[in-house]
Design a protein around this nucleic acid. Structure first.
Lengths: 224, 224
DNA sequence: TCGATACTTTCAAGATGATGACGGGAGCCG
DNA sequence: CGGCTCCCGTCATCATCTTGAAAGTATCGA
């Protein structure tokens, strides 16, 4: 979660609420600062002030959309202006949603959740139920047929991603990007190992067969 | 893969690793030399040293971005300077990623792979339905009359191609080009074998007759 | 019937995935 | 501080599956 906002008061407001909602938050005071941060690791979502010193928010958004690496970053605009044309311009420049100041903390988190649900389901706190498994991100618990399952951190994220994107095949590379993060460089084989560990854990309730190997392609999480 | 780098040691390091990773590598000691090479054939990607004799790396990058023919060439910067401003300027001038010296071979190839991956055109994930068969690239599943069919990697690609181009006859040579990729040298008879394997797989639901032999010409996938 | 063309079967080499083990690092506890 | 545990990424090895080619058989068309 990256918040690009120059007014300290607003920044603080957003910070408190996002942290409270369980998100990790990074800040930038300007577009330039934001770029620096983005060059490191990619956040899951960007909250962007429309009015920034130096570079306008929508120009920055367009820039993000123009670069391959940041093209798919969800963006939420925060703006004080409410005219229709701004809304239009905002959405045209690639925003996923926008908030008009003043906004309630609840509205902020609600919109973030909505955007994430649409763009990256595995980043929300929603409980996922599928194939006889129930995964609860908020409590970090997984239950299979009533019994709790014991997963390590990585296995949990991997399972969460799979359960949020069932049936679809993912290559090892895609999984590394999605589950480990975009600027992480690991051996593809590492995925195999974690798949194994996840299967081991799931086998406690016989759910290990939900994870299918698609030879030559990757892995797939079977729906029920 | 074009590497623009004036230091022989670094050049050698990069060369060894890229070759080992299976890439063909060309070199240039300066921007001018690089231009000469680019006037010939376009590489898939350019690894560019930030500090070059004569012309600075970022100026060269901008130049590449300005010309239509080289606009879409992925560029990875190699730099010894680590200041934030350099990272910014580098990416602003159109780099897709950058490496800071010293870097590990693994990191180099990983970033190259990542950049190429991002540039690669999205494989069409559209579901293809025809002749009672349903092929879904996203899930990598094929279903005939409700029953799932089991195909190997090559058979899957072959079927995908056929279903995407029904009713048209393809020679063995064309199929080799389209399904295996041009520049592979295989016996034409090998196609027969894979056709057989595909028919075998399809016969599980009686769809094997969708693939017709056109004697003296090749094969054709029948619509329904 | 004959020659050309296609179909099948078989096989070894090469890919690819599964598995068990290892060493290191982060964090925790005493 | 140590010592310990947990978890992670990597590797070597083993088991399996795919693949391409070869060779024998079947079929087609003239």
């Amino acid at each position: 979660m990256l918040v690009v906002e120059d007014e300290p008061a607003i920044r603080e407001l957003i910070a408190v609420n996002l942290r409270h909602a369980g998100y990790g938050v990074a800040f930038a005071r300007s577009a330039e600062e934001a770029e620096t941060i983005l060059n490191g690791a990619l956040p899951d979502l960007v909250v962007l002030d429309w009015m920034l010193p130096g570079q306008a928010g929508d120009a920055f958004a367009r820039k993000l959309r123009a670069q391959a690496r940041t093209r798919d970053l969800p963006i939420i605009f925060v703006t004080a202006r409410v005219e229709e044309r701004d809304k239009l311009a905002g959405l045209e420049s690639g925003a996923d949603d926008y908030l008009t100041k003043p906004f309630s903390p609840r509205e902020l988190t609600a919109r973030i959740k909505a955007v994430l649900r649409r763009r990256a389901p595995q980043l929300t706190d929603d409980v996922v139920r599928i194939g006889g498994l129930e995964l609860n991100p908020a409590t970090r618990r997984v239950i299979g047929e009533g019994k709790p399952l014991d997963l390590g951190p990585t296995e949990f994220r991997l399972l969460h991603f799979f359960m949020s994107h069932p049936e679809r095949v993912y290559s090892r590379t895609q999984l590394l990007d999605e589950v480990w993060g975009d600027h992480v460089f690991l051996e593809e084989r590492t995925v195999d190992v974690h798949i194994r560990r996840l299967r081991m854990a799931l086998s406690a309730t016989g759910h290990d067969d939900l994870i299918e190997t698609v030879r030559g392609t990757g892995y797939r999480f079977r729906r029920g």
